[in-house]
């Protein structure tokens, strides 16, 4: 794995990338640099929706120390780049999660822990939990396991960092593009009782819905 935050590291990687692609376009270079910085400073708001919340403290404290990779916890969703949803989501929680997600500033990413957000997990036949989370908000990385160990969570971070560094299309872009799909699904299970959104003109969805 590449080492931390050394300036020379950046210089050499930038230089070699410049030589590789023969880029004269400053904007593209800046974009690459910004992506690199972005991938090394992921601010996390950890939303303990299910059992997986118990894996968060060891991941962020001295034993596994996610901070060495620039992954730091923050207090509010408005400061965060990444939201971790750790486990099954009840309808009631989903409502809060959507609100939290929409409060976050772009670019924003979502990691989920466990099998429950993928296909219901062991709560598949509960009257009060959802199965496929990516019907309601876009998910960037699923970390599987019931529940995943901190090593797996860190592997999820590494995968996400890799994607950010490569400038791949992330979930929040999909959310903006397919807003109607997500909002329709949300409305279907939440029965229209959704808090006024920060990004969506919920009452004028027919006209594009973007506030």
């Amino acid at each position: 794995m590449e080492s931390g935050f050394h300036g020379s590291d950046l210089d050499s990687s930038l230089k070699c990338k410049l030589e590789e692609s023969g880029m004269a376009n400053t904007h593209a270079i800046m974009e690459k640099a910004v992506n690199w910085f972005r991938s090394r400073s992921i601010f996390v708001v950890a939303y303990g929706t299910g059992c997986g919340a118990i894996e968060m403290p060891p991941t962020f404290t001295s034993r596994y120390d996610a901070e060495r990779m620039g992954v730091v916890g923050v207090a509010t969703p408005r400061q965060a780049d990444l939201i971790i949803l750790s486990g099954y989501l009840a309808y009631k929680t989903l409502r809060r999660v959507i609100r939290t997600y929409e409060q976050m500033q772009r670019p924003k990413y979502v990691i989920t822990l466990g099998s429950c957000p993928i296909n219901g997990g062991m709560y598949w036949d509960s009257y009060n939990t959802i199965k496929k989370l990516d019907d309601y908000i876009p998910v960037d990385v699923y970390v599987t396991g019931c529940m995943p160990r901190p090593e797996s969570v860190i592997e999820g971070f590494v995968l996400l960092q890799e994607r950010i560094k490569n400038g791949e299309k992330a979930g929040w872009q999909k959310y903006d593009e397919n807003l109607k799909f997500y909002k329709d699904n949300q409305k279907r299970v939440l029965g229209g009782h959704i808090d006024p959104s920060y990004e969506t003109d919920w009452y004028n969805l027919e006209n594009g819905g973007v506030a």
Binding site: N119, G120, D125, K131, K132, V189
Partner: peptide
């Protein structure tokens, strides 16, 4: 459950 949340 099946009507609200079909499986993947």
């Amino acid at each position: 459950v099946n009507s609200m949340n079909p499986f993947r």
